Amino acid sequence: MELQGLHGQVVDRIGRSLAADEIRAGEVLRLEDVQERYGVSRTVAREAVRVLESKRVVTSRPRVGITVRPLTEWNLYDPQVIRWRLASPRREAQLRELAELRAAVEPSAAALAASGAAPDARAALTAHAHAMAEAARADDRRRFVTADAAFHRTLLTASGNGMFAQLAEVTEELLTSRHDLALMPPDIDMTAVHRHEEVAAAVATSRPTEAAEAVVRIVNAAHDEVERLLAGAGGCGYGG
């Protein structure tokens, strides 16, 4: 969930500057610098710094100041951090890391879901796949992305693995950010819709191997699509 209010705006502006290397690792700021740079009160500046500390992007010490931490120490699974990185000039690294994470996790999640998901989770997965198909036929990109995000959230949760389930926010942020930041092709790929339907069908009928294989096809297609976009060659459609 994005932060609201003035301090939330300051957090977002600082975070984007950090992700873009406009404020570099090791740089030390004073609270007064934050107040002056963003035109806010000391209370707002202090609250913004507290939030940034919770995301592990800065550390604050008395008589030292606010020190920017190296990227490797940030909470890279924080949805807002992901959004900052996707909006930065170094978005390629974030896109590739997310694609690799999905490839490592989602096929296993699908196999687990097919092996032991509750009936209501299997039904929800099928419903989300149908919603994706309906949105694609209506050429409703926003509704398609919402259904796609819900599909992957349900899949990860249905795995029964709590750590997989907590990665749902990461996948959801990737899917919604690609739409919001214009990081996806103009057309929805119906082949991708059919692949999601294949996953849902395999999970519904307790076929773990087929479920995992179908997810591999989804994440591989999405990865290839990202590579084409990064290479400036465009893509045939949005694969999810």
Rank of each mutant, 00 (worst) to 15 (best):
G8I: 07
V10L: 04
I14G: 05
R16P: 00
R16I: 03
L18F: 02
A20N: 06
E32A: 14
D33V: 15
D33W: 04
T43S: 15
E47A: 14
R50H: 14
R56H: 14
V57C: 09
R63I: 04
R63Q: 11
T67A: 15
L86S: 07
L86Y: 02
L95R: 14
R96L: 05
A103R: 12
A104G: 09
S108R: 15
A110P: 12
A110R: 02
A111F: 08
L112A: 15
A114T: 02
G116N: 13
A118Q: 06
A118R: 15
H128I: 02
A131I: 08
A138T: 10
F144E: 10
A150P: 02
R153F: 05
T154A: 04
T154C: 13
M163K: 08
E169A: 13
E173A: 15
S177D: 08
R178I: 05
H179G: 02
D180Q: 04
L181C: 11
P186M: 06
H196E: 11
V199C: 12
V199H: 10
A202I: 06
T209E: 15
V215R: 09
V215T: 12
D224P: 02
E227P: 01
R228D: 15
A233W: 00
G234P: 09
G234E: 05
G237M: 11
